[in-house]
Computed example of a mutant assay.
Amino acid sequence: MTGDMIKDAQVRIGGTFNEPYVSIDMTGTGANVFADLTEKYTQRRMAIVLDDIVRSAPVIREKIVGGSAQITGHFTHEEASDLAIVLRVGALPAPVDIIQNMTVGASLGQDSINKGLSSGLFGALLVVGFMFIYYRLSGVIANAALALNILFLFTGLAIVSATLTLPGIAGIVLSIGMAVDANVLIFERMREESSIGRSVRLSIDGGFAKAFSTIVDSQVTTLITAMALFLFGTGPIKGFAVTLSLGILFNLFTALFCSRLFFDTLSSAKKISKLNFMQFIGKSKLDFMSIRKITFTISGVFVFLGLIAFVQIIRGQANLGVDFT
């Protein structure tokens, strides 16, 4: 007798002591085969086998006709539920196709974590070095704010008892890049204010004021994406979304408040006499508005291709990896 002869299997409560039992309903063919088996093997055990493993072996008490049967015993509700699931699974034809075959060593996880931490630390050091060399004192302030950002981020992860995973490390690295991007926007606005002859104090005020909306827009739109990943993603994706969301929130605080506090403190103490920045590329002489039709056309083509790809994904025609199955 095979699993495709079973129509359904459910947990019921009954008997003298109201104990859980498994109720089985069979197909027409299954009812006839089951009647013959129970008549032939009365008072013997009938094994229930799934994946070549005997899941249960109840004793056949009598001939059973009608296509319905009960498996009784001293089951807990969980044990009865597990047996019912086994019977229902056995009724489903499920061919197995090997999509991906991987051999994972015992040290792979720790090795991946070590490499992830090393790459994250190396990237952070490059960013810190660039900010210090290119923006001088302002870069030092940005690095101090970045250090506070990372401290707050790990504190937040500890408070919510989040587990640090490889996607989580990627989220931290991305949030570091976004923190630096926020400071770069502020410093470039400061450069513009300083280039037209404004004082240090006015340049600082103008830099933060003019970069405020751009920073908030970029951070909030990314935060919305991170929230969507958290709501609809699975475990590793949620880890990435958590670290990225916390990083964005602390980015806003450190870039707009902590950095401003450092600048205001140094400016009030007359420690900043001039804003010094390096500049690799001079002011562009390209008239960007003159090529707007070309850029609009290119953007439209890429948007159209993206819509086609999105439709293909919805139709199930995309070549997705094993993570999406």
Rank of each mutant, 00 (worst) to 15 (best):
I291L: 12
P93Q: 06
S259E: 02
R189H: 08
F302K: 11
A9M: 09
L166C: 06
N32M: 15
P167R: 03
N114L: 13
R198I: 08
I291M: 13
S290G: 15
D205G: 10
C258N: 03
A147Q: 01
S175A: 15
S23Q: 11
F257L: 11
L166D: 06
D323H: 12
R260P: 00
K63H: 10
D82R: 14
I204K: 14
I159L: 14
G171W: 04
T27S: 13
V200L: 04
Y134Q: 03
A226S: 13
L252D: 00
D4K: 10
L246Y: 06
K63G: 03
A209N: 05
V65L: 11
L275V: 00
F262D: 03
G28D: 15
A209I: 07
L146A: 11
T165E: 05
S119E: 11
K283H: 12
G239H: 05
V140F: 09
E192Q: 07
I60A: 03
G206C: 05
T325H: 15
S213E: 11
A145F: 09
A84M: 04
N101R: 12
I294Y: 09
F310S: 15
I294E: 12
G3D: 01
S175L: 08
L286I: 14
G30H: 04
I248Y: 02
M131N: 01
N32T: 15
F75C: 09
S203L: 07
L87W: 02
F17Y: 14
V242G: 02
D51G: 08
L126E: 09
I272S: 00
G123M: 12
N276P: 02
L320F: 15
L261H: 05
V127M: 09
D323P: 12
I224M: 12
F187W: 09
D51I: 11
S290E: 13
N251S: 06
M131A: 09
L126W: 01
I169W: 06
L252S: 04
K40Q: 13
L108K: 07
N149R: 03
I64E: 10
T234Y: 10
N149A: 07
I53E: 07
G247W: 03
T155Y: 14
L275R: 03
E188G: 00
A162P: 06
M1A: 10
D205L: 14
I48N: 09
L117H: 04
R88K: 10
F122D: 14
I141K: 01
N32E: 15
I113W: 12
Q100D: 14
V242M: 11
S267Q: 12
T295H: 01
L87I: 11
L166I: 15
V242P: 03
A91S: 12
K270W: 02
G233F: 05
A255T: 09
F187I: 07
E79S: 11
L185N: 09
P95G: 12
F253R: 00
I113P: 04
E188R: 03
L146Q: 01
A226E: 05
K283C: 06
A162K: 06
F152Q: 04
G14E: 06
A106E: 11
L246A: 08
K63V: 11
D52M: 13
V33S: 13
N149L: 05
F240R: 07
A209S: 10
A35N: 02
F34N: 10
I141G: 03
R260S: 02
I6R: 00
R88G: 10
F296A: 13
C258Y: 04
T265W: 14
A147E: 04
